[in-house]
Write a protein that binds this DNA or RNA. Structure first.
Lengths: 157, 157
DNA sequence: CGCACTTAGATTGTGCACAATTCAATTACC
DNA sequence: GGTAATTGAATTGTGCACAATCTAAGTGCG
C-alpha cells in the first residue's frame, strides 16, 4: 500500500507503474540469475543457456531438437548454433533418426554425462545463493509458471 | 529432505531440481514477457529493452547513460548501441554535459515524449494479459526483487 | 505416380547482453 | 603546474534470441 513513488515529471500521464514494475523485476531477476551462474559455469565451459540445455538432457537423454526447444521455449534458430557448440565441446552428439531423417537426436557423450557430477555442486551453490527456503522458491516458481502460461495464452489479438 | 520429485533417469545422481526449476521458470517467464510485449510494441517501433529504457526516461527525463544502466542493470556496451537506435528513431537526443563532458545526457524529443501516450495502452493490455490481480503482481514482484538482491549480493568468492 | 501440404532443422539478418579494451575528461596528489 | 588514478562512454568480440526464409523429408489425396 501507499506506493509512495515520487514522480518527477508530472506533466504527462504516468499510469500506475505496477505492471511496469513487474516487468522490470522479471527482467532484472533473469539477468541476476545469469550473472550468478556465470562464475560457477565458467569453469565447466558452459554458458547459462547451454547449462539449461544440458539440464534437460541429464533429465532425459536422446531428445530431439524440437523437444528441447519446447521445454525451454526456444526455436531452432537459437538451438542449432548452441547445440553445435556443445558438439564441438564434445558434450553431445547429433544424429538423425533412421525412421524419420528430419529429426535430430541429441545424445550425451560420456564427457557430457560426466559433467553432471560437477553440475550438482553448481545447483547447490545457487540454492544457497538465493537464500530462499524451498517453500519460498516453490511459491515463487509457481507464480512465474502461472504468469508465463497466461502471457503465452494470448493470441495477441 | 524429502524433495519428492520424480526423476526419470535414476542412473546418475540428479539432485532435487527445485532450484533448477526456479531458474527454468524465471527464464521462461522473462521470454514470455518479451513475446507478449512484442506485438504491442511493434506498432510503436520499439523492442522490449528499448521500451524499458523509454519507461525510465518517461519517469525521469535527462538521465545519464550510467544512471539508466544502473536502473536496468545494463552496461554501456549494451546501452550505447541501443540508445543510438533510439536517437536514429528521433525518440531521444544525446548531449554531453557541459560541466562534465564525460557524461552523456539522454533527453526525450517531443516525439519521444509523445510516445508515452501510446505506451499507456500497452501497459493496460499487458496488465490484462497477465490476468493477475494487483496483489498477485505485487507479491510476485517483491519475491523477484528480493531474489535478485540476494543473487547479486554474492561476491562470487 | 504426381502434386500440394506439413514438419524438422538449418541459415540469415537484426538486436540484446556482457567482458575486455580503449579513449577522453575529471580528480587527486605531489 | 604536472603526473597518476579514476570515471563515463564507446568499441570489439562472443554468444543468445527470434523472425523470416530455405531445404529436405515425410504425408495425403487425386
Amino acid at each position: 500500500m501507499t506506493s509512495g513513488r515520487k514522480t518527477k515529471t508530472p506533466k504527462s500521464p504516468t499510469p500506475a507503474p505496477v505492471d511496469a514494475m513487474l516487468c522490470f523485476a522479471i527482467y532484472g531477476a533473469a539477468h541476476a540469475f545469469t550473472r550468478a551462474y556465470k562464475p560457477l559455469l565458467d569453469p565447466l565451459g558452459l554458458t547459462y543457456p547451454q547449462y539449461l540445455v544440458m539440464l534437460t538432457l541429464w533429465e532425459e537423454d536422446g531428445q530431439s531438437v524440437k523437444t528441447i526447444g519446447e521445454r525451454l521455449g526456444l526455436d531452432s534458430g537459437t538451438l542449432s548454433p548452441l547445440l553445435k557448440r556443445l558438439e564441438q565441446a564434445r558434450l553431445v552428439m547429433r544424429r538423425r533418426y533412421t525412421q524419420d531423417e528430419r529429426q535430430v537426436r541429441i545424445q550425451l557423450t560420456p564427457k557430457g554425462d560426466a559433467l553432471r557430477q560437477k553440475a550438482v555442486g553448481v545447483m547447490q551453490e545457487i540454492g544457497s545463493a538465493t537464500g530462499c527456503s524451498l517453500n519460498e522458491a516453490e511459491t515463487l516458481r509457481e507464480g512465474l509458471v502461472d504468469l508465463r502460461r497466461r502471457l503465452l495464452k494470448q493470441p495477441t489479438t
